[in-house]
Design a protein around this nucleic acid. Structure first.
Lengths: 158, 158
DNA sequence: CCGTATCCTGATAGATACTG
DNA sequence: CAGTATCTATCAGGATACGG
């Protein structure tokens, strides 16, 4: 999406980005703790204690963030019970929460590539084949595109 | 005592995620202003004034964030001069910065889908064909995978 | 286990004014 | 146009203690 204010995006110069979708998204998941909790949920953690311990945040922060994520619809708080214990609750990703998977994986892989020497401690692979996966931006069925291959259009309202 | 790991991962129960790549990435781009500045850089904005105006932040915040992004290597501050003016500087995405494009696009499209009714004010398309693009997580040449189709492996450390 | 309740520190960021 | 300098309010998040 390059435009030196003369390219294909000159139209955007007039567009007011004040409350763009990304800003709205960041109001929901724009904190480190929210993103790290989502990462942990993708890993399969469901219990309060697990989130606290594995993300490395305090109970207070975990409680607040988890509550927000539930309220915003990214996590569902559902009852479960182990034999012999009373009912407890677990936090499970909703479809809305699952839809953030590309963001999480992209951030992980970007960190692996640019912020460390060892390539990172983990790799994400296809469950069936074991092939490493990557995050790509592309039209369906086409090759991955970089910034130069992309453009942004303004949607007509109504 | 096994925390149930229904997700892509059971092996990770022992792994200490304290300084994972995502946490490191969030130390660089984990603020709203940093992400919004990157969005704006993808749109083609290069000048201080443009960032301030179009992101809607104060000069102080913009100056601090831009400096950090330059120091971390996501933006390059390069001199330019218009005819008849003195030398000024513009902020241009480096390869490292460009590599965050999937994160930006994924956040935008997630917001479009889940946080608004109108589908969002903008759409990202392939520059050549005009086809809408999407962000996918997949092995090379394969279909997009959701959380169920993924697994996480621990890398052996050299 | 699963949280709540307080207190406290530092970071984020707005408002405003000023400089080369 | 491209910042710097303050001053302030709000938020993120750690520490600690406590209750079901």
């Amino acid at each position: 999406m390059p435009m030196q204010m003369s390219g294909p995006l000159a139209a955007l110069d007039k567009w007011q980005p004040d409350r763009c979708s990304m800003a709205m998204a960041l109001d929901v998941v724009g904190t480190k703790s929210a993103m790290l909790l989502l990462r942990e949920a993708f890993y399969g953690t469901t219990r309060f204690d697990g989130f606290v311990r594995r993300v490395g945040i305090t109970e207070a922060v975990a409680a607040k963030r988890l509550k927000e994520l539930v309220e915003h619809g990214l996590l569902e708080k559902r009852p479960y019970r182990e034999p012999g214990s009373r009912t407890r609750y677990e936090y499970v990703l909703t479809e809305m929460g699952n839809a953030l998977l590309p963001v999480v994986v992209a951030l992980m892989q970007w960190g692996d590539t640019y912020l460390r020497d060892d390539g990172g401690p983990l790799r994400v692979v296809a469950a069936e084949t074991g092939e490493p996966v990557s995050v790509r931006v592309a039209p369906s069925g086409a090759e991955s595109l970089g910034p130069e291959g992309l453009a942004v259009r303004i949607n007509r309202k109504g």
